[in-house]
């Protein structure tokens, strides 16, 4: 790319875009890489139990592993559908997995 191209804005400095895209995708991939191997199976089993009692779409249940300081925390989010008799919005469960 020549300086003239640059002045005229004919070409983008694409390396910066590459770097930013990589930083975002790798942050995401690294966090799921550190998750324990049993996570998908655990997720499936929890889902099965929850669906036995609560009628929501499986896609609405979220299971995450996040790092908080020295601990990994397994977080389970289950939004509850509106029903006239109870007004709980969601079930949220946290489990500390392991000190790191």
């Amino acid at each position: 790319m020549s300086f003239l191209d640059y002045l005229l804005g004919r070409r983008q400095r694409t390396a910066e875009v590459a770097r930013e895209r990589l930083q975002i995708i790798l942050a995401h991939e690294r966090s799921s890489r550190n998750a324990p191997e049993y996570l998908p199976a655990l997720q499936r089993d929890i889902l099965e139990v929850v669906l036995r009692y609560i009628h929501i779409s499986p896609a609405e249940i979220r299971v995450n592993v996040e790092r908080e300081g020295e601990y990994e925390v397994l977080e389970l989010n289950i939004p509850l559908p509106d029903e006239p008799n109870h007004r709980i919005g969601a079930i949220r469960a946290n489990a500390v997995i392991s000190p790191r």
Binding site: M1, Y6, T14, A15, R19
Partner: peptide, 16 residues
């Protein structure tokens, strides 16, 4: 190409 901003630099890759 690195100087032209078209390729990630050594520092970029190392930083990632």
């Amino acid at each position: 190409r690195v100087i032209a901003g078209e390729m990630m630099s050594v520092e970029d890759v190392k930083g990632i």
